[in-house]
Design a protein around this nucleic acid. Structure first.
Lengths: 193, 193, 193, 193
DNA sequence: AATGAATGAGGGTTCATTCAT
DNA sequence: GATGAATGAACCCTCATTCAT
């Protein structure tokens, strides 16, 4: 990658970052291209030169998102903390780019794309899923996780928790419940016996 | 309530119902007043006569929603099925008007209103919450639920599950996991011992 | 048609008239909805309320056009002037709404519509063509027109002439040639013998 | 002309050719500079370096066009076919670059330029007209054309026919009428006596 | 000389809301 | 009270053109 391409790539990421932040804060539909252009300090047309349409931009933001997420995720999975600590971090570490897809992205993309939908899902599975599985295989081996539970069900739970915890409207209310929520996750509403 | 008022009230509910259905199907932002007017077979202005603004309409749809939900909810709580069955019904019974707020409603209202937010929350707490608490008190008494867990945490979990299960994009993938998900809810990822 | 509908119809025609004039003067592509709205003294959205899209508007202008044209045309055909005079009028009477389609309309519609294209052509044939045929049957009977010539060929000639004569860029240059052009039409470049 | 200039001239013609083809296919307004740049495989700015504006480019395409046309035209006029055959070729030979201006060019230029208009017309007259006149003088001498007809009127007819025949939307419908149309051109609607 | 990047201006279209009847 | 008609503001997108390298 030469200097030209590198600069182009940087600017692209700059725009993607701006878009991602605005999308996260306000939702996709409320953010206009003009908003993104303003935040990224480029003209609207520049965005079109890079991404061709709002649709494509959203698509690329999604990939950017998954990419960043899986990197951070990998860090946690490969760290040498005890298993429960890893799980807690994944669920509650708000600053981290969420490793699972923000639901609005996913929903939007699935509704609008249909065909590309499969491709997007593929990307997601390839990038993010393996770390989930690796993590819970570890959990099962170490006795923290019931061996009979399907990975799908566990991942569903983690994703769900992560999504919710990261939503601005619930985050604050949940903080004091951290311990209880972790407990429910590990021991269920029935509790340890 | 005389005949006039009754008719007015009916028409209002008619509009609310139409709006609710469209919001549920397409999300709030994608539904225009014109769409609602078409579906409810009234003129746009009639909607304004009743609700004054789209904002207010959404507000009222929300209340309508919570109202319907809490009624159905009450039915389940007061029925004479065993506790775990009640929980399962609440989480997985898709046809039922969701007893917790559809997240987009909640998010939208919280972001837009701020001030009224508190009022809306109050409504929600008054209407829907008591049944939750009643239900889990029953669960705790009958030994299905750990007495040390806070109601807030349990309710958070239930809401979260219900939300996710009801989302079109995940519903189908989750169906085969029903058993596992219920198990995790009751016994955690660690499983029964 | 009650008062409401009549007024609506009038306004529609008002917009159509404005659009037609602008299209004739500047071509279709150069005329923006804003231009038409300004000329018709309505808001842009009003135009959308009536016609739904620029595309549809053009379509309707076309029909409006053909309609007006065939009326005027009928007048000439049924008048009691001698045959050559009628032909001359049709070709050279510029003020008359051209009875054949302005080529840009036709081309635009054919390119964009494809499917509706057939419908449009049908309209045209139903409305305008019969008068052409009637006229030239008269011409053949009275000995002004060679009986062996196909109506298609004659109509093609007339249309072509009319189109050209009405084009702003050639009109003035042609005026002094009126006599010659008429002669060629009747007697060919070879001339009367 | 040295090597530099020659190369420059070649590139210019390359661009002109690309532009001409696109204009012919899609009309002037629908073709963007970006389209032309893509087709000619140069950057947009290169086009501006050579032609300064889209306006100028159109102008130069026009001249390029007339130039090519008059060359082909000369070939026909100076060939040794019988006169009627030459005329037929000019009118119906679609592949040949039209020797008369494509109407959209002419109209566009006339409307936009006004001042330069005269210059363009001059170019056209200088290049293309003499061959027309030469051809019809031949026709008059050989008895195919009425001596009393003005050249202007004849040329008007030829141009008009050529234009129409070359339009995609009418070409196919006209093919079966070739004979009739040629007859009308030579003998008029009245027919040979 | 040639290019990739960038942009202001404008076009078609939609929407929540108001006006007039 | 209810409606059809009308609108200003905003949105996505395109284009001819210029800037910077």
């Amino acid at each position: 990658m030469n200097g030209f391409e590198r600069r182009r790539e940087l600017k692209k990421q700059h725009i993607l970052q701006a878009a991602m932040e605005l999308f996260s804060e306000l939702g996709i539909q409320k953010v206009s291209i003009a908003d993104i252009a303003r935040k990224a300090q480029v003209s609207q047309v520049t965005i079109y030169n890079y991404f061709e349409s709002k649709h494509n931009l959203i698509h690329d933001v999604f990939i950017y998102y998954v990419d960043q997420a899986s990197n951070q995720f990998e860090g946690i999975v490969h760290s040498d903390q005890p298993f429960p600590e890893k799980v807690k971090m994944i669920i509650f570490n708000k600053k981290q780019v969420s490793s699972n897809i923000h639901p609005e992205f996913y929903q939007y993309l699935m509704k609008e794309y249909t065909e590309e939908g499969n491709y997007i899902e593929k990307i997601y599975i390839e990038k993010a899923l393996p770390y989930f599985i690796q993590l819970f295989d570890e959990g099962k081996k170490k006795g923290y996780v019931d061996q009979n539970l399907s990975n799908e069900a566990i991942i569903f739970y983690i994703q769900m928790l992560k999504d919710y915890v990261q939503r601005e409207d619930v985050y604050e209310k949940i903080l004091p419940l951290t311990e209880d929520i972790t407990n429910i996750f590990f021991y269920g509403v029935m509790g340890k016996k």
